[in-house]
């Protein structure tokens, strides 16, 4: 356990020692801030209109439904863009610089190293999500949003991000070149994202399959405030599978190199 923590700490520190963490969090904060303002402006316009028509005023328009939900839905898109930058160097850079020799000749199991790297990336992602919470905190000052859908939405975001990170780790373990790793990761993420569109064109059976595969679709219920165990199981299995592939890749690299 302490080995996993040591690796995770090292990973997190190295994000902050390089520009990566600042670029990732900065980009996230900027784009998120933009979405926040855009959606908030839209929300205010809507609620003003409603109060003009003599309804029950702003509260009639649910803050959760009309503001927080679309906002956090947009976070999933941000994750798609910034996560490759988080994971691209995890293995690739260690292989390029030779520090992988230190890790693999230390009394650590592959599992400890992989899980440490996973948790390190999750921690950085967690910090990104914290940034998004600051904005939401402001809503709590002026309105009365519900807590529960927020918790489920953030749980969903964490799990969704975990899926991306596990795939990103795997791809990073395949190459020495972090740029190649980053681009390939982005391509795979994008594919996992748009896979539902393919389904939409190609009939009900394929549609079902692609819906299942699309890691975004499984987020919808979390966004609505529903924690459905099937989706939780889906995400957890996805993450486990990604980490398993990473372990296979690290081990087979050992036999090849």
């Amino acid at each position: 356990m302490s080995n996993i923590v040591a690796i995770a700490q090292k990973e997190l520190k190295s994000y902050f020692a390089s520009p990566i963490a600042y670029i990732v969090i900065g980009m996230f904060a900027l784009l998120y801030g933009y979405f926040y303002i855009a959606i908030l402006a839209y929300f205010i316009r809507q609620s003003l209109q409603m109060s003009e028509f003599g309804g029950q005023g702003a509260q009639a328009l649910n803050v959760n439904q009309a503001l927080i939900r679309p906002l956090l839905q947009n976070v999933t898109i941000l994750v798609l863009f910034v996560m490759p930058m988080v994971t691209m160097r995890t293995y690739a850079e260690e292989k390029r610089s030779g520090t992988i020799e230190l890790l693999l000749t230390s009394p650590l199991t592959d599992f400890q190293i992989i899980l440490g790297k996973f948790l390190g990336a999750m921690a950085l992602y967690g910090i990104m999500l914290l940034v998004s919470m600051i904005h939401l905190g402001i809503l709590f000052l002026y309105g009365r949003p519900e807590w529960k859908p927020l918790i489920s939405a953030y749980l969903g975001l964490l799990l969704l991000g975990g899926c991306f990170i596990s795939v990103g780790l795997f791809i990073s373990s395949l190459t020495k070149n972090q740029i190649v790793a980053g681009m390939a990761t982005f391509a795979v993420f994008l594919f996992l994202w748009v896979i539902t569109w393919i389904g939409g064109f190609s009939g009900p059976t394929v549609d079902q399959l692609t819906n299942y595969l699309s890691i975004i679709n499984h987020y919808d219920d979390f966004g609505k405030g529903v924690i459905d165990t099937t989706h939780v199981i889906y995400y957890v299995s996805f993450i486990t599978f990604g980490l398993f592939l990473t372990a296979k890749s690290v081990d087979s690299e050992r036999w090849r190199s």
Partner: peptide, 13 residues
């Protein structure tokens, strides 16, 4: 203890 051909240092530490 192992010292590889290139010392395995982390540049940002």
């Amino acid at each position: 203890g192992y010292l590889p051909e290139t010392p395995p240092l982390y540049p940002d530490m």
